[in-house]
Amino acid sequence: MSDLSGGFTQAPQQSARAFRAVLEAMARPGRVQVLDGAAPPAPLSPAAGAVLLTLVDQSTRLYLAPSHDTPEIRHWIAFHCGAPLTEADAADFALGTWEALQPVARFAIGTPDYPDRSATLIVECDALAPANARLTGPGIETEALAHLPETSAFVANHASFPLGFDCLFTAQDQVLGLPRSTEVEAI
């Protein structure tokens, strides 16, 4: 029965709270937000599960990277989100560890006319600390520090602004946002 458990028990209220955490994360890059309420099957983290429950549904194509392409996760997503699974280059959302999502250059970055038609990567991490990158840009008053799996890919992603993919890094019940608008520098 594991397929049927682990979703939101009060979907409207819990997804509203989860969205506000994701919104704050995306609007204030580098600031870690708490995101709980979901109990998805391992290795999917509660935070990533909550992101899926809040944003992903029948109308969004989801790519599962090899790290997260397990029968349990497929069943859980099929039951709770109903998102059609797809290849990486056609995905609206992608889920996996940073290593499993490589090469990230294959994800949609939008078009000059429609930069919003781009992928959102849900990147599963072991931890969101210690900081190894300095962030500047919209949403950040002066600068913010964050733990990123690498920096060069995000420098390249920002260079094509307003095109680019957007990232949500998740670990346990924590989420950290990195939109394409953020300038990233290794420290």
């Binding site: 919104l23 995306m26 930069p115 919003d116 608008s181």
Partner: peptide, 11 residues
């Protein structure tokens, strides 16, 4: 919500 997040990403 998806539209709002893309709006935030491309101010």
């Amino acid at each position: 919500r998806r539209a709002i997040l893309k709006g935030i990403a491309v101010p």
